[in-house]
Amino acid sequence: MNQKYLVPLAVVFLLFLVAYTGVEGAGLQGFFGIFVPYAAVVAFFGGFFYRVTKWARSAVPFRIPTTCGQQKSLPWIKQNCIDNPNTGTGVFLRMVLEIFLFRSLFRNTKAAFNRSEKNELTYSWEIFLWVGALAFHYAFLTVIIRHLRFFIEPVPGWIKFLEYLDGIAQVGLPGLFLSGVVLLAAVLFLLARRIYDNKVSHISLAADYFPLFLIIGITISGISMRYFTKVDIMGIKELTMGLVTFNPVIPEGISGLFYGHVFLVSILFAYFPMSKLMHMAGIFLSPTRNMANNNRAVRHINPWNYDVKVHTYEEYEDDFREKMIEAGLPVDKKE
């Protein structure tokens, strides 16, 4: 079991070292600062597009939402419009709650069996996975948006405002961003859960640990650059602006730590489309959530519906005519 997380951990370490030494030792700034980021972005968008079109090309033969509340039926029975939507608006609301608030995960319970005289199975509300997941995703989103300041000049006001909110704790200098701390804490929680929760550990693959370590590596390298080693921020902005304006330059004096950080981010981008991280796009296409439960009211068309051999009434009556007549059941043909 150990190697399921030790190998991905070692791989992430190694990847970081490759970039760090590649820059500090072999002077491969151009490779790690220009070629790899471009390639990663191409892989990300290409792969993302490829995967989503592959999904979209698969048919949706049946309308099979999972209904999680009262259906629309008689006018005096109160429908649960969101968890069992029968209109596009309802579906939209359901999807918004699912995507932005992880509504299904919010329902999570934990079962326990108490072998005693009562032998009770009990279920308690289990909120931690939801909290951890929500904290992780929103912190990550904030971090990503903050990083847009490296790709836009002048930095728009709304990014500055977000930075202001993120740094509202006003601790230390440079001011501490909460998002970084929350991100690291959340990702460590998710990792701990994977390792120490018996069931989750059993189902985890190396492919589940790898992105976690990658993100941990990215977060730690990012935090050290900002708060501890104090990299050349002006140089970095020159480099990132060069990338985004397709005039790539490699300014002097940027530390290897930065290239390690960028390399891990690039790996994450390139790895994204071929991994489970695609749940980001998949959730939009999940037929059990994104369809209305109105199948009895509005006919759904199956694009590959084909004719099948059935046992017709005529064949049936041929099999049983005499017995039917004898039993006094009506028949279509009398003999």
Partner: peptide, 11 residues
């Protein structure tokens, strides 16, 4: 989609 997107969260 179900083959591709499970993150094995254990919920």
């Amino acid at each position: 989609v179900f083959m591709d997107i499970c993150v094995r969260c254990g919920a």
